[in-house]
Nucleic acid binder design. Structure first.
Length: 461
DNA sequence: TCCTCTAGCACTTTTGAATCGT
DNA sequence: AACGATTCAAAAGTGCTAGAGG
């Protein structure tokens, strides 16, 4: 695995200020990524998003859906998503709230989900929403399907990488930009802990319609075993708390009013957010108890995101902060400044695109990609990068492997990374890049943060 | 005993092949 | 023969539940 230090030399040192401001011919406006369904994400985030992980793999809900702008129309890009641990802790659900339950388990093999359209022209990415619907999460460390492997009862958030690269083989030498959205952080679970989350999922996920009260599944609900209900009644935070959901004290004072008419309340809640920012995270209760101060449980989620080092943390996954900020903007205020017309979360990067990389042949994105050249159909590299094993044998799927100088054996299709011990420790370079990222002094709003660094300083390769 | 995880269930949506009509 | 619309079954995606296992 190539160290960050090595990459640094290839990258000619810290990101020069000129990269941001230099009169490069390919200095494009800015890459902007916005999160769709922001309100929905926020609704979940207020309560404390949980994502089910299963052995065969489970989709996320809400699923990640973003919009991109500011790309070079005729240059090719690759979009990637990976999951980053929020901190170095394991959590447990106890009495209506999440509590730290110990140190995190060793990080499972790192995997990155490649958007199946990758690589595609900038125009392709910008003409429509980019959905990561088929991204799946698993807790099976031996997973052969290329799903993203997570630990249950640990917190993560997705990172979106935009890489300007003609193909997957050149990704390695490419510079990419990374975006994160605070609203998308979640706790991986094998079974829902918070009934409010369950209800939200049922209410919003079409596949769960059958569990809605007004749905057709009355028979099933009517047949619930009374004994079972009684048993579950003894458990805190389980189903039968429906009646007290909206009034349960000490639970982040959620604005969740129960799930009747939930959708209709979204707009209303949006306004309320502007006032009650402290309830924005269900981790607030823990903060009050002083359980922990440098985990999300103990710190304002906003702050975490505004100070977080986007370069992967060391094995312990302690948030590595190269830069300390003052109190980050309140969710409400920053929301207002970052929500686009459609109410999306967004973050705008103003770093020049990869074309400004001195080592990058800036002439390449030129005519060779532009002009009458038809937009290539989505090249299904999913068989290579993500759905590897599952699809490798299918017709029409490119079945080659990606070359890896670090492992001639391992099919890089899985983007599997080294064991946790191989994660690089905090490195000056990472700090450099973070500094670079934050030195632009953007108003990050409440949502996105980006960084730009040589690809796969992370563990995937 | 508690907590976490898993398998099977009933339900829904999605997908793709087959059929039909123009 | 080609194309589009419709139908239908299979596949896939949900949360629920009981029970296993550490």
């Amino acid at each position: 695995m190539q160290s960050i230090r090595e990459l640094k030399s290839n990258f000619s040192g810290p990101p020069p200020a000129s990269m941001a401001a230099g009169p490069d011919a390919y200095l494009q406006g800015s890459i902007r990524m916005t999160l769709e369904d922001l309100e929905l994400w926020k609704t979940f985030h207020e309560i404390g998003t949980e994502m089910i992980i299963t052995k065969p793999g489970r989709r996320m809900f809400p699923h990640c859906k973003v919009n991109l702008s500011g790309l070079i129309q005729c240059a090719k890009y690759i979009l990637l998503v990976d999951m980053v641990p929020e901190d170095g802790f394991r959590y447990k659900w106890n009495k209506e709230k999440w509590e730290v339950a110990g140190k995190a388990e060793p990080q499972p093999p790192c995997r990155t989900y490649l958007h199946p359209d990758s690589p595609a022209l900038g125009s392709h990415w910008m003409k429509q929403s980019i959905s990561f619907l088929k991204l799946k999460l698993t807790n099976n460390t031996l997973d052969q399907h290329g799903h993203i492997i997570l630990h249950s009862m640990h917190r993560y958030h997705p990172r979106f990488h935009v890489v300007q690269a003609d193909d997957l083989f050149s990704v390695r030498w490419s510079v990419f930009q990374t975006f994160t959205f605070p609203e998308t952080s979640f706790t991986a679970v094998t079974a829902y802990q918070n009934t409010k989350i369950t209800k939200l999922k049922i209410n919003h996920n079409p596949f769960a319609k059958g569990f809605r009260d007004e749905g057709t599944n009355k028979k099933r609900r009517a047949n619930k075993n009374p004994a079972c209900l009684e048993k579950r009644a003894k458990l805190p935070g389980v189903l039968n708390e429906d009646s007290k959901d909206s009034s349960s004290p000490g639970f982040c004072q959620s604005s969740y009013d129960g799930y009747d008419g939930e959708e209709g309340r979204l707009a209303k809640r949006k306004d309320e957010d502007a006032v009650k920012e402290e309830r924005y995270s269900p981790w607030g209760a823990e903060r009050q108890q002083g359980v922990r101060t440098d985990s999300p449980a103990g710190a304002d989620t906003r702050e975490i995101y505004n100070t977080e080092q986007l370069v992967p943390a060391p094995a312990s996954y302690q948030p590595y902060r190269a830069h300390e900020y003052g109190k980050s903007p309140s969710p409400s205020s920053s929301v207002g400044s970052s929500i686009t017309g459609s109410g999306r979360s967004s973050f705008e990067s103003r770093v020049p695109d990869i074309a400004t990389d001195p080592d990058h042949d800036s002439s390449k994105p030129g005519p060779s990609h532009c002009g009458p050249q038809p937009l290539p159909g989505p090249q299904d590299y999913s068989g290579v990068l993500n759905m590897t094993m599952a699809q490798a044998g299918k017709p029409g799927v490119i079945g080659h492997h990606i070359y890896s100088p670090y492992s001639t054996e391992q099919p890089l299709g899985q983007w599997s990374g080294p064991g946790p011990a191989q994660y690089p420790p905090p490195h000056p370079l990472t700090a450099d890049y973070t500094t670079q990222a934050v030195h632009h002094g953007y108003h990050h709003g409440n949502v996105g943060e980006w960084s730009q660094y040589p690809l796969f300083s992370y563990s995937c390769w």
